[in-house]
Simulated assay, not measured.
Amino acid sequence: MTIKTLIKFHLFDLIFTPYNGTAKSSKSILVECLQRINDERTQNGQAIVLDRHEDRKDELPRNLFVASAAYSLTEKIYKCRIALIRAGKIPTLVNKSNYSIAEFNKLDSHDIAEVTNFYIDVNGKVPVVCCEFNSNGPRINDIEYYFRQISSHKMLRISKSCKASIHMKMPINDVLNSITDVLKFEIKAKPSRLNYLTSVVQGSFIGNMNLLANTIEPRSIKIDAFFRDRGKNSKEVSKKNLKALTFVKKVLSAIQKDNKIAEEIDDFMLEFEREDGTEDIFNLLKGKIEIEAECSLKTSGNLDTKELFEKVSLQFNDYLEEYNG
């Protein structure tokens, strides 16, 4: 019996800002990046390895490299794979005959890597990326970082910024432009991530979460905040909670500017009231547009990447037709 597993993909635009005085589009910048990656592989037999944690003294390296970037003439999509070289603890092996455990220490010149598949469409106004969700491997922010470095003054000198704009079922701009009151929000994060959130989402609320976490040292901290009594509608409540509204707008604006915040927050859910009096829900994690596909596993436990691309590319193309209008 063939074993199958469900794979989820998220979508995002990859937007580059060219250096002043150049008229390069995000598409042309990305294509140059992919060409540079492929040239390094074909001409020098190497990959371009970048450490996302290069400037962080107290963290393990996060070495990334694009392992392949091939253009599919049939689908008119770039098929790519990005790898994260595993640092720190190495996994152990299990003998399936008796379930004994053995150390996996004979790697010789090899390292263990986690691989994420992603596909890029460059036929629209900006490149659209369909990226596998891999909790152990490279994520959207890693891809954003990698192409930012390739295109920057450090290498190609053709772009001064690179931004991944995630496709959401409810765009953050829509919430920011229409929210008039906060009914409820939930926020959950690990204490180790609260220092970063405090520095980015400036305000006393996250700072107080951080203080509480340092006081009692939980594995994670979650706060549910309610701002309206159950059973009361907007006509019965005239006073808006301006403090909560200001805080929520700060969080949403910060998320919009910095995708890393989505990695630092375990959960963020918002119930809010719009200008027309209707109520709505924004969910940071569950609100991303997704493509799902069942894919066969090879005997080694790895995905059948050919099958995966065939299934996902069909849905990706259907989505792009609607998205590009």
Results as ranks from 00 to 15, higher is better:
Arg228Asn: 04
Leu156Gly: 07
Asn210Phe: 15
Met155Gly: 06
Ser152Gln: 00
Glu275Ile: 14
Val312Asn: 04
Gly207Glu: 06
Ile77Cys: 13
Lys232Glu: 08
Ala70Ser: 14
Leu84His: 07
Pro61Asp: 03
Thr246Ala: 15
Thr5Phe: 04
Leu73Phe: 15
Phe104Asn: 07
Arg86Pro: 01
Ile7Asn: 10
Ser135Cys: 14
Leu303Ala: 05
Ile216Gly: 02
Arg193Asn: 15
Pro218His: 00
Lys240Arg: 14
Ala213Gln: 05
Leu93Ser: 08
Ala87Glu: 06
Lys288Cys: 11
Ala213Met: 07
Asn195Ala: 13
Leu14Gly: 07
Gly277Thr: 03
Ala244Arg: 05
Ile101Lys: 02
Val312Phe: 04
Ser68Ala: 11
Thr22His: 04
Thr198His: 11
Ala69Gly: 01
Ala213Leu: 06
Asn233Asp: 15
Ser178Arg: 14
Lys190Ser: 06
Glu32Trp: 06
Val122Phe: 03
Arg228Ser: 06
Tyr99Trp: 14
Phe272Ala: 01
Glu271Ala: 09
Pro127Asp: 00
Ile140Leu: 04
Ile143Trp: 00
Thr116Tyr: 05
Gln315Thr: 05
Tyr196Gly: 02
Lys24Asn: 06
Asn214Leu: 13
Thr116His: 08
Ser26Tyr: 03
Glu186Gln: 12
Leu11Tyr: 01
Gly21His: 02
Val115Cys: 01
Val126Arg: 14
Val94Lys: 02
Ile120Arg: 01
Ser161Asn: 12
Met168Trp: 03
Ala254Trp: 03
Lys286Val: 07
Glu40Ala: 07
Leu314Ala: 08
Asp318Ile: 09
Phe118Trp: 00
Thr2Arg: 11
Ser26Arg: 04
Val175Leu: 00
Glu321Phe: 15
Val312Thr: 05
Ser296Met: 03
Phe205Gln: 01
Phe247Met: 04
Pro171Ala: 03
Val122Thr: 10
Lys190Asp: 08
Asn117Cys: 13
Asp174Lys: 10
Asn63Leu: 09
Pro18Phe: 06
Phe268Asp: 03
Ser178Ile: 12
Gly277Ala: 01
Lys160Asp: 15
Cys131Val: 13
Val248Met: 03
Ser220Arg: 12
Gln149Gly: 06
Gly277Cys: 02
Ser220Asn: 15
Pro138His: 00
Glu279Phe: 07
Pro171Val: 02
Met168Tyr: 13
Cys130His: 00
Asn233Tyr: 14
Asp266Val: 12
Gln256Thr: 10
Thr278Pro: 05
Asp13Gly: 09
Leu176Ala: 14
Ser165Asn: 14
Glu294Thr: 13
Pro191Ile: 04
Cys80Leu: 04
Gln256Pro: 09
Ile143Met: 00
Ser159Gly: 05
Ile77Asp: 15
Phe65Pro: 01
Ala67Glu: 13
His53Lys: 09
Lys190Arg: 14
